[in-house]
């Protein structure tokens, strides 16, 4: 799974509703893989408005991925270096194995062969 997907997943345990804690999920024991993919400007510009950029930079820093500015440039389209780095971090950085722990309730979601498992037990929904 790409870091983009990590940026879209939050804990959804019923009682875990504090938005400051149920997102982003804390990555643990992960294996990373870079997979090259074609850069698509329109898609990327669309995603810029959709991702939680603060969560992305926080996660990138934790993973030792450097080169993303603290804030989105005013005119990202005019900043090819930013666009390329964002593409690499968001769309080319893949988590193949690992865990995502909720900082609110402690629930651990696993990532196996690149697929996050967001299923919960009946009593947690």
């Amino acid at each position: 799974m790409r870091l983009l997907t990590h940026n879209m997943l939050q804990c959804h345990v019923k009682k875990c509703t504090d938005p400051a804690l149920n997102f982003p999920l804390q990555l643990q024991d992960i294996e990373l893989e870079q997979v090259e993919t074609e850069e698509n400007e329109d898609l990327l510009l669309n995603l810029i408005n959709k991702v939680d950029y603060n969560a992305l930079t926080t996660t990138a820093a934790q993973l030792g991925l450097v080169g993303l500015p603290n804030a989105i440039p005013k005119d990202p389209q005019a900043d090819p270096a930013f666009m390329t780095r964002l593409h690499e971090v968001l769309l080319e950085t893949n988590i193949t194995q690992g865990k995502m722990a909720c900082r609110g309730c402690g629930h651990v979601y696993t990532i196996k062969d690149g697929i996050p498992n967001m299923l919960l037990a009946e009593h947690e929904i």
């Binding site: 799974m1 790409r2 997907t5 997979v35 996050p116």
Partner: peptide
């Protein structure tokens, strides 16, 4: 092909 897969219950209770 590149595709993101997510295991999730699309329609919860």
């Amino acid at each position: 092909l590149e595709m993101e897969l997510v295991r999730v219950n699309v329609v919860a209770g």
